[in-house]
Each structure stands twice: as C-alpha cells, then as structure tokens.
Computed example of a mutant assay.
Amino acid sequence: MIPARYQHVLFGLILSGLMSFIVSGIATFRTVGGIDGFLLLWMTNWLPSWAVAFPTVLVVAPITRRIVARMVRPDPQAQG
C-alpha cells in the first residue's frame, strides 16, 4: 500500500491519466476518424498528453480548491 501522505499525488496521477486518455481519444478520433492503426495513434498522442496533464493537475488542484472554497458557503448541517 502507498502511504497516505502521497494520496494527493496518486489522485493527480489517476485523474490526469483518465482525463487525458479520454480527451486525447476524442481529439484523435475527431481528427482522423476510425482509421486502421487508430489505437496506436491514440496511445502515441495520449502518453505525451499525460506527461503534461499530471504535473499540471498537481499545480492547478490547490489553486482550484482555494477558488472553490471562496465560491461556496459552509453547510451549517455539516458542522454538527
């Protein structure tokens, strides 16, 4: 098991992997259609995308959390 202190990194790794996988697949399909060799082309587009997406998620996630915290009000029922 991975220590809990790395939870945010693991979350970013999985989130960025899944998101870049889906987005690169859609973009590749829209560009070339269902051609022979589509999967190979998709994977060669996805891996560099993930290499950019992962560090981006690690940097952007804390900023996004702060923005969201300013946009919502606390739920009085959640505080007990």
Rank of each mutant, 00 (worst) to 15 (best):
S20T: 05
S20I: 03
S20D: 01
S20P: 01
S20V: 03
S20Y: 04
F21G: 11
F21T: 06
I22D: 02
I22P: 00
V23G: 03
V23E: 06
V23I: 15
V23L: 15
S24K: 10
S24H: 10
G25K: 10
I26R: 13
I26A: 15
I26K: 13
I26W: 15
A27N: 09
A27S: 12
A27Q: 12
T28I: 09
T28H: 07
F29D: 04
F29K: 13
R30I: 08
R30C: 14
R30A: 14
T31G: 03
T31W: 06
T31H: 14
T31S: 12
T31L: 10
T31A: 12
V32P: 00
V32L: 12
V32W: 09
G33Q: 07
G33Y: 10
G33F: 07
G34Y: 09
G34A: 11
G34K: 02
I35V: 08
I35A: 04
I35C: 01
I35P: 01
I35K: 09
G37E: 08
G37N: 05
F38W: 15
F38I: 05
F38L: 13
F38H: 06
F38N: 04
L39V: 15
L39E: 06
L39Q: 09
L39G: 07
L40Q: 11
L41N: 06
L41G: 02
L41S: 06
W42M: 07
W42H: 15
W42Q: 06
W42S: 05
W42I: 04
M43N: 09
M43D: 01
M43V: 14
M43W: 12
M43G: 02
T44V: 11
N45S: 01
N45W: 07
N45D: 05
N45M: 03
N45L: 00
W46H: 12
W46M: 06
W46K: 01
L47I: 15
L47S: 13
P48H: 03
P48M: 01
W50P: 00
W50E: 00
W50T: 01
W50C: 04
W50S: 00
A51L: 15
A51H: 03
A51V: 12
